[in-house]
Design a protein around this nucleic acid. Structure first.
Length: 110
DNA sequence: ATATTGACGGGCA
DNA sequence: GTGCCCGCCAATA
């Protein structure tokens, strides 16, 4: 497991309940905007159940393409359960629910 | 042991 | 404004 993965998990764990983040945003926070793909890899590999990978969505606001074999609905349910509105199209309003970047950076750098 | 593939998105031509 | 390119890890066959 690379340091990058650990960092990614650390960042994802810092996402507050009721908020969501995106692959691109996490990539940016981790130091390289073009790393969103690796963020996806890290989520796919997510062995650690304490990592709230369901709070990580696409930059377009859509939920992840596939969420393991449990299906995309699982991610939808988890988000709804945390108070995040998810439309019938499985999209989240980022204007409202996106994790603030400043707050995120502040949290991580402590 | 090696090759393939899989939760993506920013930056540059 | 559009489209291609690049990043770069782990699980699985």
């Amino acid at each position: 497991m690379s340091e990058l993965y650990k960092l990614i998990y650390k960042i994802v764990k810092s996402i507050p309940v009721g908020k969501v983040s995106t692959y691109g945003q996490i990539a940016f926070i981790s130091g390289n905007s073009r790393r969103s793909r690796v963020v996806g890899y890290a989520m796919a590999a997510c062995k650690d159940s304490s990592v709230p990978c369901h709070r990580v969505i696409r930059s377009t606001g859509e939920l992840a393409r596939t969420f393991g074999f449990m299906g995309p609905n699982h991610q939808r349910d988890l988000l709804l359960n945390e108070g995040v509105e998810v439309s019938i199209e499985n999209t989240v309003n980022l204007e409202v629910y996106l994790w603030d970047l400043d707050e995120a950076l502040n949290n991580i750098l402590i």
